[in-house]
Design a protein around this nucleic acid. Sequence first.
DNA 1: CCACCATATGCGAATATGCGCATAAGGGCA
DNA 2: TGCCCTTATGCGCATATTCGCATATGGTGG
Lengths: 105, 105
Amino acid sequence: MTYEQAELRADMLKALAHPVRVLIVDALTAGDRCVCELNALADIDQSGLSRHLAILKKTGIVSDRRNGMKVFYHLETPCILKALTCAFEAVKNHARRRASLLRAG
Amino acid sequence: MTYEQAELRADMLKALAHPVRVLIVDALTAGDRCVCELNALADIDQSGLSRHLAILKKTGIVSDRRNGMKVFYHLETPCILKALTCAFEAVKNHARRRASLLRAG
DNA sequence: CCACCATATGCGAATATGCGCATAAGGGCA
DNA sequence: TGCCCTTATGCGCATATTCGCATATGGTGG
């Protein structure tokens, strides 16, 4: 893999690597949501949420669509979920390994 | 998903979200490598590489094993590759969409 | 046009990340 | 023990992220 290819992948991962953005992507798997609905996900300023959405949009993970006064966000890359699930499984495995090491040692 | 669960996933993604670390994980899919081998992957200081490896190790993505003077790193979570592949496909889709928008508009 | 609602952006401050240099730490070998 | 090789860590600096506040923008309805 070239460095440039690695950079593309890293940019994608970086766009996802924030708890609020993970929550957003998770919520969008159930269907499109407007900003006002997503705002209930985390205890965060509205402007902050808007910025997180802009980050996801810039990398193409989500797209947006206006409907009257509201803007709805749509998950463009559902496969990104596999990444999240994998990450979660890996975290659990890691925790389990650490726990058994603590028991043994 | 709770905020705590999202934080765990985000930590995992953050650990991967750097081009050098992506290169490391990619290289380790072909088998264990010592630091001196990995050092050839990118034009980076040896201390920097060591730090990147420490980040991957802390989250459980890789583990290390001493063999004589050398330390070998091992990929603990090969499923993480699916995340990388997904990220890459998503990047390509995004680029394609942007390109066709440019053509149309 | 004006008031209002939903969303986005400018700005500054706090914090985190990444880097290189120097150096420490762990281990092999004479 | 002393020297060398491989890898890790302390430190300071530059840059990037994140956040909240204030405010701008786009759209609706009176």
